[in-house]
């Protein structure tokens, strides 16, 4: 697999010939399985074939059970400069419910050690878990904050098909997540973190100034990105492509020098829709001026017309030419976005 990843980096260098790599992100699946040495090798390949910025953001996604003290110390001396840790919760009950390999203690311990060696850390938390009281949620947030990390990603629990949780919910062993509870915990989150100086810059992301995820922000702002590895997605400004998902197939074809990718060319309305969808999730909102210059006047007029009813009912705001979801609208962003879509 590692060879295939290196080969893909080499094969696709041409695509980024005029670009500067600002961020490198190891995520999806379990990148923490890679040894520090292997990570360095891959990062080295990026430097070899691409023009990398002076201060790149290099993130590694990892779960607490992978981040032993030893491992954290190794990573600290590697080029990786940001850790994204899948804490999820500091309570054993929640972690069992979500079928996680670590327990609450390990989560706490890992975050403590990591924060000794890394300044730029983000922790993933999950709320809206059946049985999670608002107090326990507040406690979770406090525990995450006690080590002074500058970023938190918090997600409402969604029951995905094919998971153990899904079968528990369908068989009635576990109550289905409650949307009123999720809504309340979302508000708690936003208030508590706001009071601590975090900016709620994307629906599920909170960061202190200077610590927003540079990598993820580029997805939301429609910048170019290149995904390396099976089923990874790439975007070059007009076309989105994704690698074959099957690992053996991926390896086989890449090592033969062939990229097995599906692609779709985004039409103007596709790009408009994506901008609306991602923009509404962020503090940068959807700028009418940008819609006009990038997609045309008719799109701007359409956007404002469609937004009318939500401006009226207070789910959207329009200030200085920018549409944003209001506090009331935030948790309904998908429906609002689709209302503004052009199909």
């Amino acid at each position: 697999m590692l060879n295939a990843l290196e080969k893909e980096l080499e094969l696709r260098a041409e695509e980024f010939r005029d670009e500067v790599v600002e961020t490198i992100y190891f995520g999806g699946g379990t990148p923490s399985l890679l040894t520090a040495e292997e990570l360095e090798r891959l990062i080295g390949e990026v430097y070899k074939y691409y023009d990398v910025a002076g201060q790149p953001e290099i993130t590694l996604e990892a779960n607490p059970d992978d981040l032993t003290d030893m491992r954290i110390r190794e990573l600290a001396v590697s080029p990786v400069n940001r850790l994204s840790i899948g804490i999820q919760s500091f309570f054993d009950e929640d972690l069992r419910m979500m079928n996680r390999a670590h327990n609450g203690n390990e989560a706490l311990k890992c975050l403590e050690t990591a924060s000794e060696y890394f300044d730029n850390i983000t922790a993933d938390l999950i709320y809206g878990i059946p049985g999670m009281s608002n107090d326990r949620w507040k406690e979770n947030i406090r525990k995450a904050l006690q080590f002074g990390i500058p970023h938190i990603s918090a997600y409402a629990l969604t029951v995905e098909a094919g998971t153990a949780l899904n079968s528990f919910v369908s068989s009635g062993k576990v109550p289905a997540p409650d949307e009123i509870q999720a809504g309340a915990q979302f508000s708690i989150l936003s208030e508590l973190l706001g009071a601590e100086g975090f900016v709620h810059y994307e629906l599920s992301n909170f960061g202190k100034e200077g610590y927003f995820s540079r990598n993820n922000t580029s997805y939301w702002l429609g910048r170019k990105y290149m995904g390396i590895g099976p089923s990874a997605h790439s975007y070059n400004g007009t076309e989105r492509s994704w690698n074959v998902a099957n690992n053996p197939l991926y390896i086989k074809s890449v090592l033969k020098g062939k990229l097995s990718r599906e692609r779709e060319v985004l039409t103007v309305s596709d790009r408009y829709n994506e901008y609306v969808m991602t923009g509404l999730r962020t503090i940068w909102g959807v700028a009418a001026g940008k819609v006009r210059t990038e997609f045309g006047e008719s799109y701007e007029a359409y956007l404002l017309e469609q937004a009318g009813k939500h401006l009226e009912n207070g789910l959207l705001s329009f200030e200085k030419g920018v549409l944003r979801t209001t506090t009331r609208g935030k948790f309904l962003t998908d429906g609002i976005a689709s209302d503004l879509f052009c199909v």
Binding site: Y155, E179, I180, G183, L203, T278, F331
Partner: peptide
């Protein structure tokens, strides 16, 4: 409708 939003995007 109280919640109509995907967590991850």
């Amino acid at each position: 409708l109280r919640k109509d939003v995907t967590a991850k995007c």
